[in-house]
């Protein structure tokens, strides 16, 4: 009995050794000797999965786009205003809320514009019931560089480019999705505790005004101001980097947006 078992074991091993040898030589052949050949992606192999597009249609689908504020930088719980907003909405409503957070830290309006040209993002944009947007902070402050020389000659080209990008972004959103409400979160002045606060505040106010004007060009876009939230006690609501909101600061923004969403 034992002898037979060993013979079988041996023959299986030998057989599989040959299979493995085949696999190895195949790999070698296709990698070492056919590397010059450029292979086109054959279309018929690409998986077709129709009917999957509608899986997200139950409940509400919220899409968040933007920069570090959307990401939640500075919030110790990592939620950011988006996370707190979802929590709040979920406590008010029984409906299932699906969130897709596409925020990228440090994103500028130009980068967002190229991000929303991606296919998958566009698919989500088309499906969303609500779209939340924070953008512009990095365009204006440029990681604090703007503060070195906040002169009109410096700001003006920045603002011009930003407004052009913003208009294009909103245009894209509206073309893809006519029904979703879009909330554009305005900027606050993180430097209001500094001495020349009058000057930076003026710049931010002007920036916000121009953004809201662009938003008004499209239907169903709500411009949500945050300037006033951080105006008086900025230090209490800012994270230790003195730029991003802390947990409390995000809560303020979340509450404001939550009061605007009703279904």
């Amino acid at each position: 009995m034992k002898d037979k078992g060993i013979s079988i074991l041996l023959s299986i091993s030998i057989l599989f050794t040959l299979v493995l040898l085949g696999g190895l030589s195949w790999a070698l052949k296709s990698y070492l000797f056919e590397s010059q050949k450029v292979v086109e992606l054959p279309k018929q192999l690409v998986e077709e999965q129709p009917g999957e597009k509608n899986t997200q249609k139950e409940g509400k689908f919220i899409l968040a786009l933007g920069d570090s504020l959307t990401r939640g930088t500075g919030d110790p719980t990592g939620k950011g205003y988006i996370g707190q907003l979802i929590d709040e909405l979920q406590s008010k409503s029984k409906e299932k809320i699906t969130l897709s957070n596409m925020g990228i830290k440090g994103q500028t309006s130009a980068q967002l514009l190229s991000q929303i040209k991606e296919k998958e993002i566009q698919r989500q944009m088309a499906e969303a019931d609500y779209i939340l947007l924070t953008i512009g902070g990095n365009d204006l402050f440029q990681q604090g560089q703007t503060l070195v020389d906040p002169s009109p000659t410096m700001i003006e080209p920045l603002q011009k480019a930003y407004l052009k990008n913003l208009r294009e972004i909103l245009q894209q959103l509206r073309t893809l999705n006519k029904d979703a409400t879009i909330f554009m979160i305005g900027l606050y002045n993180p430097f209001s505790y500094l001495d020349d606060t009058l000057h930076t505040s003026q710049i931010v106010r002007e920036w916000n005004y121009q953004s809201s004007e662009v938003c008004a060009e499209f239907p169903l876009i709500v411009y949500v101001p945050t300037f006033d939230l951080f105006q008086l006690k900025a230090e209490d609501y800012l994270y230790s980097d003195k730029f991003h909101p802390n947990g409390e600061g995000y809560r303020l923004i979340a509450e404001r947006v939550a009061s605007l969403i009703n279904w």
């Binding site: 899986t55 699906t98 897709s100 596409m102 989500q124």
Partner: peptide, 12 residues
Amino acid sequence: LGTTDWRATLQQ
């Protein structure tokens, strides 16, 4: 993610 769609997962 609240979805089984792999595209959403991959995008995330």
